[in-house]
């Protein structure tokens, strides 16, 4: 009967509308048959596997991951095994790149290779701390604002407005000059960047929560007696994980931009500690004469940030694939 089949089709497609939970489930019996009664393969894939699969199908995203991993691991290894440490001072002043100093040496005879590698590590270290902090704070604030709405929401969103009303770099310059420069510690630098970087995640999560809280599965869990905390943490946050992860990745890249800009302006990492922004600032006057003092930090800084942006873009595409290629 044609009517029956169309009805059952409507039911199956309807049941898939429930959200990201509703991937093809294995039949309750346990045995996975090659084809179940809907004509689908019973091979249950987890959300994570699907996303990872889509992620690794993008050439630029894979290039990004490989570059970032290579940079990070080699910078760590260089810090341990390389002949020179970034604090070493030798008698080879301003020598161009050679076999013993592949990136040359600077005006006090330090090996640029170890300096650049140490700067890379420092940048990654700060950026990861900033992103972790911003994501934690931002998701919490966004979740609370979107879930409870009302005056809590308005209050928290005005706090976001307060931070966004001035260019973030300007506020960072004030804070860095007054707080972090005195403390002269990368940890404080990360804290102040993180304290200003959570607003975008908060807005994203809030927007997601405003629509999620109206969904049937949330209503169902509430009817079953789930507490507000359980609803937020166990049911709604996992459904917002895509935008959160994408944004966390972008935050890593953006905080490297902010940190290196502050270091370039002399308000971030201070000598004798090293970051790529500081190295660029030290090398800028000799860019055309002792080019290796300028070019290597610049190249590493740009590649580092680029690889993270590519990863973020790949993640975004993997979580939210554009439906179809356009039929031109």
């Amino acid at each position: 009967m044609p009517d029956d089949t169309s009805l059952s089709e409507a039911e199956t497609t309807g049941s898939q509308e429930v959200g990201q939970h509703s991937l093809p489930m294995p039949p309750p019996g346990g045995h996975l048959s090659p084809l179940d009664e809907h004509g689908m393969t019973g091979d249950a894939k987890s959300q994570a596997r699907i996303v990872l699969g889509r992620f690794f199908h993008q050439r630029l995203a894979v290039i990004g991951v490989c570059t970032f991993a290579t940079l990070g691991v080699s910078a760590l290894l260089v810090g341990i095994f390389w002949t020179y440490s970034y604090t070493d001072i030798t008698n080879n002043l301003n020598t161009p790149p050679s076999w013993s100093d592949p990136f040359g040496t600077n005006s006090i005879g330090s090996d640029m290779f170890s300096l650049v590698m140490h700067g890379t590590i420092k940048d990654i270290q700060i950026a990861l701390l900033v992103a972790a902090m911003a994501t934690l704070v931002g998701s919490t604030i966004g979740a609370v604002a979107g879930f409870y709405r009302g005056w809590v929401d308005s209050l928290l969103m005005r706090l976001v407005d307060l931070i966004l009303v001035v260019p973030i770099l300007a506020v960072l310059i004030v804070l860095a000059h007054i707080v972090a420069k005195q403390a002269n510690n990368w940890f404080f630098l990360a804290i102040i960047i993180g304290a200003l970087s959570w607003t975008y995640v908060a807005r994203l999560v809030r927007a997601d929560f405003l629509s999620l809280r109206e969904r049937d599965f949330v209503e169902a869990s509430r009817a079953l007696g789930a507490s507000n905390t359980r609803l937020i943490v166990r049911h709604m946050l996992p459904n917002a994980i895509g935008p959160i992860l994408v944004n966390a990745t972008i935050t890593v890249a953006q905080s490297i931009v902010l940190e290196s800009t502050l270091s370039f302006l002399g308000l971030g990492i201070q000598a004798p500690d090293v970051s790529l922004g500081l190295l660029v600032s030290q090398g800028q006057d000799s860019a055309t004469t002792e080019w290796w003092l300028f070019v290597f930090p610049v190249v590493f800084l740009v590649i580092l940030i680029l690889s993270i942006f590519l990863m973020g873009d790949g993640l975004r595409e993997a979580f939210d694939p554009k439906k179809v290629k356009t039929r031109a």
Partner: peptide
């Protein structure tokens, strides 16, 4: 075009400024 966009997105302002100035 996309790669160029990402390259300029990744390069901090001071890097682009210095490169234009020096090179």
């Amino acid at each position: 075009a996309t790669l160029a966009n990402f390259l300029f997105l990744a390069a901090p302002t001071f890097v682009i400024g210095l490169l234009l100035k020096e090179f």
